[in-house]
């Protein structure tokens, strides 16, 4: 890898966008599980630079492996702030591997394989699909009523994404908090 050789096209800062949290129900019993659906995407500089053109350059610099670490936690509002953690934060890793493809349909030689947090390898059909597989997040989590306790709760998801230094992005991290949702636990 070529350190500090950030010649990829200039783009704005990276951010977490379109973050949303939904529950499959508004009301649960204290001994019941609840399913929370979290969606967000990593936008801005990182996404804009993660293109086939830049992969080609990164590959030449032998910068072929990316680790994107995602940490996701839930918190409930106590005393006016979302300070009380609900359950343990979950750490996940998504990876991208640049490789020389011999797909005769492609004119460029570098392509990408994305490996999701379940270690499922995927070879995208297009650059946009590669961005989506790596940087879009849509996953459900199970919480127990006992994690929340009885009462009416305001819950948020706190998300952090971080990555190391690469040809297409300086080392960085971004954080975001979802809009709150209300859950009544009886």
């Amino acid at each position: 890898m070529s350190h500090g050789q950030l010649t990829a096209k200039k783009a704005g800062p990276t951010r977490i966008g379109s973050i949303s949290l939904k529950a499959d129900r508004d009301t649960i019993l204290v001994d019941e599980p609840i399913k929370l659906l979290l969606r967000f995407q990593i936008d801005g500089g990182f996404r804009d630079n993660f293109t086939q053109q830049v992969w080609e350059e990164a590959y030449k610099a032998h910068d072929v492996r990316l680790r994107l670490t995602l940490t996701i936690g839930f918190a409930k509002k106590v005393g006016g702030v979302f300070s009380r953690k609900v359950g343990k934060p979950i750490k996940m890793v998504r990876k991208a591997k640049l490789f020389w493809t011999r797909n005769p349909e492609r004119h460029n030689r570098t392509w990408v394989m994305v490996i999701d947090e379940n270690e499922a390898p995927m070879i995208p059909k297009s650059g946009a699909e590669a961005q989506s597989l790596l940087l879009d997040f849509n996953r459900s989590f199970d919480l127990l009523g006992t994690d929340l306790g009885k009462g009416t709760h305001s819950i948020v998801a706190k998300v952090k994404a971080k990555w190391g230094r690469h040809y297409y992005a300086p080392k960085g991290s971004v954080e975001a908090t979802s809009p709150p949702i209300k859950i009544v636990c009886t």
């Binding site: 030449k60 020389w100 493809t101 011999r102 797909n103 005769p104 349909e105 004119h107 030689r109 070879i123």
Partner: peptide
Amino acid sequence: MALLQIERKPDSAFQGRLIRHTQS
């Protein structure tokens, strides 16, 4: 780096699920 372009496109008349294209 470049790949010698060959005339033919990958054949699509196969049974099963495509994993990746390559050359042989």
